[in-house]
Write a protein that binds this DNA or RNA. Sequence first.
DNA 1: ACCTGAACACCGTTCAAGT
DNA 2: ACCTGAACACCGTTCAAGT
Lengths: 223, 223
Amino acid sequence: MAKRRTDGLSKEVIVQAAAAILDDGGEAALTFRALTARLSTGYGAIYHHVANKSDLLAAATDAVITRVTSNAVVDAEPREALRTVSLGLFDAIDAHPWVGAQLSREPWRPALVEIYERIGGLLEALGVPERALFDAAGALVNYVLGVAGQNAANARLLAVDQGDRSAFLAGVSAQWASLDPARYPFVHKAATHLREHDDREQFLAGVDIFLAGIAALHQRRTS
Amino acid sequence: MAKRRTDGLSKEVIVQAAAAILDDGGEAALTFRALTARLSTGYGAIYHHVANKSDLLAAATDAVITRVTSNAVVDAEPREALRTVSLGLFDAIDAHPWVGAQLSREPWRPALVEIYERIGGLLEALGVPERALFDAAGALVNYVLGVAGQNAANARLLAVDQGDRSAFLAGVSAQWASLDPARYPFVHKAATHLREHDDREQFLAGVDIFLAGIAALHQRRTS
DNA sequence: ACCTGAACACCGTTCAAGT
DNA sequence: ACCTGAACACCGTTCAAGT
């Protein structure tokens, strides 16, 4: 250590190192000090390629999302392609929770443009009429972002408490079950389902509700 | 200044002061130094009532959300009550963007339990069958959280750039319009809609898609 | 052009000491 | 029991100086 790098630094190398730190230790672990240590360099070298920490996080997020959205789903009908792309986003965010937190934070960045393009394009291919297209795309993208935020939050909690996922769910479930059924009838009942539910399946169920809603709204003849 | 408080401190007073600072200057403005100055007290006094900064943010969020969810919508049919509660959450998050950021961050806290209870309860009143109820509530809550995150991000950007809302939208719209129509056909087309759209209306359109989807899925007889 | 690393201006949080 | 504020262990970011 403490020896000088022989190869040149680049934004790509920096972003890759940042992503590795984020995957290993979560958002709190990404500091410029950790980054300089991993890259055997100084602060200024990093700032020469990257504007600031926010820029770095955004670039790392863009890289992950582009990998998912550019995965062409060949010869699949739009409905199935939408489910595949949605699930791809879900899995990517599950594997890299910091992406979820970032997506709910800087929506004008390239990563979100990619997502809008992919989902909007598939909805159009599905036959959603133009007047309904933008509301539909906005709703579906916001749903995905909502799940992304939740995933990130759960991952953060799991990182703090050492316990595994099922222990965590059991804990929240017990907490929900202990609420007064008179004041919280729904949440009290939901406690059981929470313990048994599958995140991926529930996510897909939400996508299906959306697609059914879009179909229902633009096909009915009477108000 | 620098004079000692005569009245005692309480968690409620601290949380209220924190909310005022957040409303005035955004999330970055809430520091323990700013809080001690506003309350004419020391750090230890605050830590005596509040575990840490995360606890403080969560408590402030709970207070805002409870105000919305406890607003009983009397004698309204479930469908209309769902729209009213959703819009109430949208407006509250619009007025306090830090609530949006926080909601996508600590989902096991009381604020989210309140939201699940309200929305889940209304979906049940709408006649959604039990087997579909929890997926439906999860999807709708995640949609609301997604919009919450976006709202918070937009507010953060508007706070940095001095420009107003329409100037911001015009800027993003111009950026989208400048994208290559061959590579980004949907986003390129969406640029116009983005400039003209109404956030509240689009949010409600998403809620309607959901409700239509839930109705469609649990009423159809054939698969 | 690209890199180094001491220094600056902040943070959240702790804790011995006060009343 | 409740409060004070100096001190600690961090941050992101800058910038004069090097190659």
